[in-house]
């Protein structure tokens, strides 16, 4: 169990994040869940990249064990993507709040349905 501590945390965050996205009706909370879900992937990549006792990969006669730098670089990109997604999601939530006066999914759905009913749209 302790050997796989990093993976246990990763899986916990992954499942917790996904659960929040599915179970919560609040648009902001959904985005927080999505962020947690994405963060778990950062750990999935970074944990195996680090070797205990390993050093930065600059070749020198003093060291023989090096960490892999590539996962960190990849995840730097993934973090940027995550930030952009979160920012866009929040911006959409603001616009939805302006248009519907609510950020609760079921209320928004209800308002659309009453609007549809008055238009005769079959959804």
């Amino acid at each position: 169990m302790l050997d796989h501590f990093g993976y246990v945390v990763t899986v916990f965050l992954m499942v917790a994040g996904l659960f929040i996205v599915i179970a919560r009706g609040n648009l902001i909370k959904k985005l927080i869940g999505l962020s947690i879900f994405q963060t778990s992937v950062y750990l999935l990549y970074i944990v195996p990249g680090k070797l205990i006792g390993g050093t930065a990969p600059i070749i020198s006669p003093q060291f023989s064990v090096y960490s892999n730098p590539l996962p960190h670089v990849l995840i730097l990109t993934a973090i940027v993507v995550g930030v952009a997604t979160l920012a866009l999601g929040l911006a959409l939530a603001v616009r939805i709040r302006e248009a519907y006066d609510s950020i609760e999914e079921d209320e928004i759905l209800m308002r659309d349905q009453t609007a549809d009913a008055s238009e005769g749209v079959n959804t």
């Binding site: 992954m14 996904l18 996205v21 648009l27 959904k30 999505l34 879900f37 994405q38 992937v41 999935l44 990549y45 195996p48 996962p71 993934a78 997604t85 866009l88 999601g89 959409l92 939530a93 616009r95 939805i96 248009a99 519907y100 928004i108 659309d112």
Partner: peptide
């Protein structure tokens, strides 16, 4: 205004899909 909720819904589903893809790529890389 339903374009906004449609975009939001797609953002959630699309990001979950993309994250699944990146998890898959992660396993392959490992």
């Amino acid at each position: 205004r339903r374009a906004l909720t449609a975009a939001y819904q797609y953002l959630i589903m699309g990001s979950i899909g993309a994250t699944f893809i990146v998890i898959g790529i992660g396993f392959l890389y490992l």
